[in-house]
Amino acid sequence: MAFILKFLLAILAVGLTAIYLRFTILLNAKRNKPLRHGRRNPNEPTHLMIVLGSGGHTTEMLSMLSRSVQDEDQSQRLHWNDYTHRTWVVSSGDSLSAARAEEFEKMAAPLSTQEGLMMGKVKRATDNGPGTYEVVTVPRAREIHQSLATAPMTSLTCMQACRNVLLKDTTTTREGHGGQAGERDVPDLILVNGPATGTIMVFTSLLLRFFDVKGVSTRGKMRTVYVESWARVKRLSLSGKLLRRVVDRFLVQWPQLVREVGGSVEYLGVLVQ
């Protein structure tokens, strides 16, 4: 009896150690980045996921993206068609965020195509054109006046939806290999700010990486960037606290917050406009 108990304990210890080691690899921000050959290599499709929330979060996200794609400093300008496919995630019922995402795409996609061709920096052969985008909906993690008792249930539903969205686009090539020209692959990058949906999306991607579903971990996919709200000067938001140790990059918009929180938190100036 004692032997069996010891045996089980040993297995448990090994199991926990393995899980722990797996997480240290997953959470290492210096882990593998995808291997790329040029920014707009037609053989290497790129996929950016942006998670919008309601109200203020959507406003801030679009504000900083708009500022980036229109930056007068060429070295800091974000070229929207560097990403051949963009997935915008909105919560169900939030038609306003969906409309604003569409509006942004109409503004940003032609901007970098024409501009890039004119600059002569992008060869026609490697220019992917404006790329494609899609606005997808996931159920809300928590309704505004929902009781906390039912929150775990709705969070799970939201998580399931996030998983489906994250794995919506997969390639036909062998597992563990990159997609071919024109194909869509799982997101390379997930950009989130404050909303609960964004937090759940990041944790869902972490689970997928844990089990290396579709080779997302070995292929260096689903890297995560979190931007704390500009309204947060000295203290992190709840989403910020939850995500601080699990995202690859954690950006804040006030230097005070770097001193306060420390660690790998980065201040690169005000990002919104």
């Binding site: 930056d71 800091q76 950009l191 260096g220 960037v225 931007v227 690859d248 980065e266 100036g269 990002l271």
Partner: peptide, 22 residues
């Protein structure tokens, strides 16, 4: 600001995470 940091703005961070080296 970016002089103290290796990255330049949002674009710099996204580029680094994407592995865009050019």
């Amino acid at each position: 600001v970016h002089r103290q940091s290796k990255s330049q703005g949002l674009k710099g961070v996204l580029d680094e995470e994407m592995g865009f080296l050019d």
